[in-house]
């Protein structure tokens, strides 16, 4: 089999995952997109493993590890999402922004204070 097929499929899948991570609003969907990215990597690894006829089977071993890591991550990730939902009543990634540092409000308040002081 041409190696290009699985390799191209993998990188396309990865890019789809990238798009999903950046475009989705619900954190669970973002997590799903991350899973797509990881799976793309898995396909890559398996294909390279078979192509290289690696006697150590590093690719497949790493694939198995990646699957496990992904499972662990999604478990913990969902727990975090639920915690966010419980405390912030939302699961939209762009609404969880309380810790940002933009401080436009702060700046405005400061400016007002300065005006008053002058």
């Amino acid at each position: 089999m041409h190696l290009a097929y699985p390799a191209v499929l993998a990188v396309l899948l990865f890019s789809v995952g990238v798009y999903g991570v950046l475009a989705r609003r619900n954190v669970v969907l973002v997590l799903m997109s991350v899973e797509l990215m990881l799976n793309a990597v898995n396909l890559n690894l398996v294909a390279f493993d078979v192509w290289l006829r690696d006697t150590l089977h590093a690719g497949q071993a790493l694939t198995l590890f990646t699957i496990t890591v992904a499972a662990a991550e999604i478990g913990l990730g969902l727990a975090i999402v639920l915690l966010v939902y419980r405390t912030r009543r939302t699961a939209a990634v762009d609404e969880v922004t309380a810790l940002g540092d933009r401080h436009e409000a702060d700046d405005l308040a400061d400016a007002a204070k300065e005006q008053a002081a002058a």
Partner: peptide
């Protein structure tokens, strides 16, 4: 930099990727 620190994780991810 502070302006970029919007608190929106998606923005952070965009920069990362």
């Amino acid at each position: 930099v502070r302006f970029a620190q919007t608190g929106n994780a998606q923005g952070y991810l965009t920069a990362l990727l």
